[in-house]
Design a binder for these strands. Structure first.
Lengths: 234, 234
DNA sequence: GCAAAAGTGTTATACCTACACCCATGC
DNA sequence: GCATGGGTGTAGGTATAACACTTTTGC
């Protein structure tokens, strides 16, 4: 088992930053300025640096590319992608991270002058082949991971601001899952699940209609019983 | 963004091989012969080689260390572990794989004369600090991943041989989850879930009691609705 | 007969689905 | 008043939990 047999490589940390904005489920993509894949869209990311843990690298990249503070955001690993030909520059294994962002008032601007843009997720998933590297695969897996977590965790609240209405939370489910949930049943479900939501005294009046109670995210991470979507898995 | 800032590293592929034998939930561990951690127990594994994908490396290690053919086994990625100090030899990121093995008639013998042994999982999880590297963390996460998958996939059948009785399948749940399920309700649940089990004409007579129908694993991967364990997640 | 494991039936309960209905606001 | 979204009530279906009970073997 000589050391000569061991592949020496670099490790990329890519970011799948998801949000709900303009009543649409969107992902942050950058346009690559340099080869390989110059001019194509890609997930933001960068290489692991000496002394960094994987999660530290993800947080650093997040700050560099979007000026978002990882301390306030949900950040979780998606897996590892290591096909030998995935990067034409040489052997690079990617460990992508999924980040969930609330709809941000400030426009996203990368510190290193990279053109970053929010794109609706669905068209990108529907016609793969447009993203650089194997980022289509990574995006697909990360989105599926997020969709699943809406079922049995309180992840949906990470898409919302500090306080939010049940209608906003329902929009997250509707848009991320791409299906309409019954507003009345949804209301009961989330208000009766212990630790999901903490009511506040404030209310918010929509453009038209009755004012809605504002909530903030509760201490629970898991959902029991889970939120159900249709029987579409096999 | 100079290349000098990029950490260059090696990638380890470790294996968490789980089985049910001697009416106990067990994991395959090796005793390390060389530093670091010489004499301590560790997960089997090795380094990624040039031209290999991660999954290929996992399959190769599985064959080398246990003479098990990956083609017939369930093999899935657990995640990536990249703390900078996790390996004293230098920067090594580990991508562990979870493998599920049926109770094997042949004793496990590594091809490279490593002392491999089955150990009950629970004591190792209960008193961490005994395994080399961060293998305690990896084992904990892999076991939790397997336990979860018993809930909403048909993974349990991977612990069984080609044909098996419902009692054997229930033993898998009982031993992996560490709780007793009601045999009568379990029976109904698995036989009524479409695609979980395919009945055969054969039966097997236990030491004492009525002969049980032998089944083989069905085409379904997912379980809807899921198999429930108690409300222990939060 | 007896022990042990396989397998069926039954009832109560929890939860979801679907939908009717009322409430509070802006115009 | 009317439109719009917030929020509650209720009836029916499905799956689970907990249990009694029957079946089929070896001894």
């Amino acid at each position: 088992m000589s050391r000569r047999h061991h592949e020496v490589l670099r490790l990329a940390v890519d970011l799948v930053i998801l949000t709900v904005r303009d009543r649409s489920f969107q992902v942050l993509l950058i346009e690559r300025g340099n080869p390989p894949f110059a001019g194509q869209l890609a997930l933001p990311g960068g290489f692991l640096r000496p002394g960094e843990s994987l999660e530290e690298a993800a947080a650093r990249e997040l700050l560099e590319e979007t000026a978002l503070d990882a301390g306030s955001l949900h950040l979780e690993q998606v897996g590892a992608y290591g096909h030998p030909d995935r990067d034409p520059r040489g052997r690079v294994v990617s460990v992508p991270y999924l980040a969930i962002a609330p709809n941000l008032p400030t426009p996203v601007a990368g510190s290193d002058a990279i053109e970053a843009q929010w794109r609706p997720v669905e068209p990108v998933l529907a016609s793969p082949g447009k993203l650089a590297f194997d980022h289509d695969d990574i995006l697909r897996d990360a989105v599926e991971q997020a969709r699943r977590q809406l079922e049995y965790t309180t992840l949906a609240t990470r898409f919302c601001g500090e306080t939010f209405t049940i209608g906003e939370l329902r929009d997250v489910y509707d848009l991320v899952w791409g299906m309409r949930l019954d507003p009345r049943n949804f209301n009961r479900k989330v208000t009766r699940t212990d630790g999901f939501l903490l009511p506040t005294d404030a209310k918010r009046t929509p453009e038209t209609g009755r004012p809605a109670t504002l909530y903030r995210r509760g201490p629970a991470d898991g959902l029991h019983p889970p939120m159900l979507r249709g029987r579409d898995l096999s």
